[in-house]
Design a protein around this nucleic acid. Structure first.
Lengths: 205, 205
DNA sequence: AGCTCTCTCTACCAATTGGTAGAGAATCGT
DNA sequence: ACGATTCTCTACCAATTGGTAGAGAGAGCT
């Protein structure tokens, strides 16, 4: 905690604000979290938050940017490391997406907020994600040609997978409604069920 | 629009408030929609809303209650009407869930709000949904025994399906990020892809 | 030492929120 | 005809929100 009149220049304050914002936004949503609450979590005044980020919208932007960039790196690495078999590759991507999510639920929880973004924010996010998706779609299409994947619409498969992952991310607690336990073991079990589904649906007949 | 000093007793006002609240909550979230905005949509003052529903929380409750009850009826009817084959039955449920969603996107969009509910609200919702899920789980388990479905954990399958549907519901616009078009045709295509997936994953080897 | 830049602070503000108090018009049962 | 009930209104309020203005402490360069 920093006392009044002792503003030791602290380059990490910005990072700590981003960190707290990610957790809080992810857990309870952008609307429900005030700048003041974020500031309190960091041990700083609300106006300090507004010094680092000109407005709440800018802060949201920065958080999304950070998360998207990290996610892209993780997925990218997983794809490159995976063996040549397309089924194994899909499997690797699914596990790669869930790994950070298991460690830090707020990460995927943030996805829930995407639907509330402004047009420009959504566009910027898409700029990060789209290239990844396009590559995946082309890859899937190519492998369907070679017969190593069951034929289908790769874009729909991508959309469905994305929807499923965000669905899991969105509702770790809501899934209790269907009797699912939202702990790490439960998350892993659900991830594995998704892997099974994808394999079953993509394995050539 | 009702003019001042002309409060013709109108039993439908309550219904119209519920209706507007459903659409607005579903489209933009409970937090982002004020009572005043709902009132304006109905053509009434905010205080009239508070006359019919003691607080915003009560209004949210009522909307959820209504949606849950309707959804239960729809699914129930679909199951009863479906043929005896378990794969067809699963298929019928998926279509039944999507039918109201296609007609009225806000309906499933409301699911996004579930994660922000209070404990008591979540419990009440679960009271509606759980029996349905339990029946489905037992049914799936029984059919796995008879060999007409691939064996697996029925509860995980239910959870995964639920997550997928809510994922689609949550992100009709966010899915644009992966290049998916969020119109009715797109929704149908995605629904059919989900049906294909479920069939592929559940068909006995 | 003195000056500038970086950073966090105190003090405020206008707007919006959910909610309360209570007046008054229309309808219905008597 | 009349009183009670039902329903919507005007008028307020306390609390919270995102955001602004500007003071002032510490660090580093000259």
């Amino acid at each position: 905690m920093i006392q009044a009149g002792a503003p030791v220049p602290d380059r990490t304050t910005r990072e700590r604000i981003l960190d707290a914002a990610l957790d809080l936004f992810g857990a309870r949503g952008v609307d429900a979290v005030s700048l003041d609450e974020i500031a309190r979590h960091v041990g700083v005044r609300k106006q300090t938050v507004l010094y680092w980020f000109d407005s709440k919208e800018v802060l949201v932007d920065a958080v999304l940017e950070k998360v998207a960039a990290e996610l892209v790196v993780v997925i990218d690495a997983a794809v490159r490391a995976a063996p040549d078999d397309p089924l194994d590759r899909v499997d690797a991507v699914v596990r790669a997406v869930f790994r950070p999510a298991v460690r830090r639920p707020a990460l995927l929880g943030l996805v829930r907020e995407v639907s509330r973004l402004s047009q420009s924010q959504a566009d910027r996010l898409a700029a990060h994600i789209s290239p990844l998706v396009e590559r995946a779609v082309h890859y899937l299409a190519a492998e369907m040609e070679t017969g190593r994947l069951r034929t289908g619409d790769p874009r729909l498969i991508a959309a469905l997978s994305y929807a499923t992952v965000t669905g899991i991310a969105t509702e770790p607690e809501a899934l209790r409604t269907v009797g699912w336990v939202a702990d790490q073991a439960g998350l892993r079990a659900l991830r594995d069920e998704l892997r099974t589904f994808l394999r079953a649906a993509l394995t050539p007949l």
